[in-house]
């Protein structure tokens, strides 16, 4: 039994190491140059269609979205600007309502802060509850109860 546990320990170590190695290799390797179409998709996914609420330019088939998509394609074909510069350019031209990602300043930042706050509160409450339960729940079983369980088990078999 003892050797088995040790063996297990080594194989768990091996498992963890291979998982980390695979993750590191897989997530850092170069997947080849991005095509223009990939760049168009990536940019249009964070731009909102100006005429239809809530949809991205990538999703929408409305004419307003089509013209932004065409503009993005033109900018990328021009090859001068980076993705961020193109987004800034589109924002300057069409107004800030075409941004699909809420800003991280001012009132808008609440949308990023609140989920984290709620998560921390929830985890904190849970941690607190476990600590309290640990104090409450450590009562030991009386002999009488133990015998009762024993008897019940015997009858069940």
């Amino acid at each position: 039994m003892k050797t088995k546990t040790v063996q297990n320990k080594w194989s768990w170590l091996l498992l963890c190491l291979s998982a980390v190695a695979l993750l590191a290799f897989g997530s850092t390797r170069d997947s080849g140059p991005r095509t223009q179409a990939d760049r168009i998709d990536a940019i249009t996914k964070v731009l909102a269609c100006p005429t239809c609420s809530g949809e991205s330019v990538y999703v929408s088939r409305a004419s307003g979205a089509e013209s932004i998509r065409a503009e993005v394609a033109r900018q990328i074909a021009g090859g001068q600007r980076s993705d961020d510069e193109i987004i800034a350019y589109i924002e300057a031209r069409f107004g800030s309502r075409v941004l699909l990602v809420p800003r991280s300043t001012g009132l808008d930042s609440l949308i990023w802060v609140l989920p984290v706050f709620v998560l921390v509160c929830a985890v904190g409450t849970l941690g607190f509850a476990f600590r309290r339960w640990k104090v409450v729940g450590s009562d030991s079983i009386s002999d009488e109860d133990a015998q009762l369980v024993e008897r019940a088990l015997r009858e069940d078999r």
């Binding site: 909102a48 809530g54 309502r97 941004l99 699909l100 990602v101 809420p102 009132l107 949308i111």
Partner: peptide, 13 residues
């Protein structure tokens, strides 16, 4: 309601 401007919260968020 608070600032009377429109923002869009979409897929990236």
């Amino acid at each position: 309601a608070l600032q009377s401007r429109t923002i869009v919260v979409g897929e990236p968020f």
